[in-house]
């Protein structure tokens, strides 16, 4: 496990196998904290995987053969005598900041998921995330994304944003070039009013769950108040990056929905799901409606059950 600094060359993108096999080549994909850069060596330009973070270098072999089949098939037609590749994922893990980084080399790697991943755990399309419902509207529920499954917290101060002083505000485009966008700006600005606050502390990754994305059947009959309440923790999938303000999430799957809720709008006790649309408080027996997640159904079962769900 070597420590690397940003800009350090980790591996060339293609490398002949060390075992001396003439047919086999090693291909290295850049994972988190790494990027491909071309380096001039004499007259040639060589693609090299370089570190973009300070941390430990982690190399994992990508085992799943089905993963890049489509890509390989297309390549094979052009070049029938293409050598066999062993694929590796090279990533840089920064310090011991989270449990994830500690076990990074044991987590199953997938090139498709990792190549364009940023070092921070930003939500991307298709990611399963944990979000907290902050506000309900007739057509949509507002949430704040807290963490991405399998990757850790979205930001170090996640969850702070929506209880901050000005949680509804955010930075406009152009970032902090206006005054009062950070504590430093407030402190050093000469025209800040006494008692001025920065625009927000702990920026939230805001998201929306629209009524039509809550469940897969009878979408037009969905009443948002029967599905979520503010404060609920929801397991959801990122549908799209959405607009500038919100990510779009969906819970239209059996394993998605509310995983943690308290009764009486948060004043009561923890509730447990008794079926996919009802939760009951263990202490008081209060029954409330939610779109519950079945956390113990496998992905295949989720597809089969979807019809029985709404029957």
């Amino acid at each position: 496990m070597t420590t690397v600094v940003p800009g350090q060359y980790l591996e060339p993108e293609y490398k002949p196998n060390d075992n001396g096999g003439t047919e086999e080549l090693c291909r290295y994909f850049p994972g988190k904290g790494a990027a491909i850069s071309s380096v001039k060596v004499g007259a040639h330009t060589l693609p090299v995987v370089v570190a973009t973070l300070l941390g430990r270098k982690v190399v994992q072999e990508l085992k799943d053969p089905a993963e890049d089949d489509a890509e390989e098939d297309a390549d094979d037609k052009n070049n029938p005598a293409k050598p066999k590749f062993r694929k590796f994922l090279v990533s840089v893990v920064a310090g011991k900041q989270s449990q994830y980084s500690e076990y990074a080399d044991q987590i199953e790697a997938s090139a498709v998921a990792s190549v364009r991943a940023a070092a921070t755990n930003l939500p991307r399309e298709g990611d399963i995330v944990l979000a907290r419902v902050t506000r309900l509207q007739l057509k949509q529920a507002h949430c704040e994304i807290l963490c991405v499954y399998g990757h850790g917290n979205v930001s170090s101060d996640g969850g702070v944003g929506s209880i901050g002083t000005n949680a509804h505000m955010s930075l406009p485009m152009g970032g902090g070039s206006q005054i009062l966008s950070s504590y430093a700006a407030v402190a050093s600005s000469q025209n800040a009013m006494p008692g001025a606050q920065p625009m927000d502390i702990g920026e939230a990754y805001r998201a929306l769950i629209r009524t039509q994305d809550i469940r897969s059947t009878e979408r037009d009959k969905v009443k948002i108040i029967d599905c979520f309440r503010p404060g609920d923790l929801v397991k959801a999938v990122v549908l799209s990056l959405g607009d500038g303000s919100n990510y779009y999430l969906t819970t239209a799957r059996n394993d998605l929905g509310v995983v943690f809720a308290k009764s009486e709008g948060g004043a009561g006790d923890l509730m447990v799901a008794i079926d996919w649309e009802t939760m009951v408080c263990e202490k008081t027996g209060v029954v409330e409606k939610r779109k519950c997640a079945n956390l113990f159904s496998s992905a295949e079962a989720a597809g089969e059950e979807s019809s029985s769900n709404t029957a």
């Binding site: 485009m173 152009g174 970032g175």
Partner: peptide, 24 residues
Amino acid sequence: VSVYGPRPIKGLYIERASLSVECR
């Protein structure tokens, strides 16, 4: 030098992060 971010913006969708540098 203090760096804040990456943090979400509000407004239109942008594909790349916006970077601002302010020296005082």
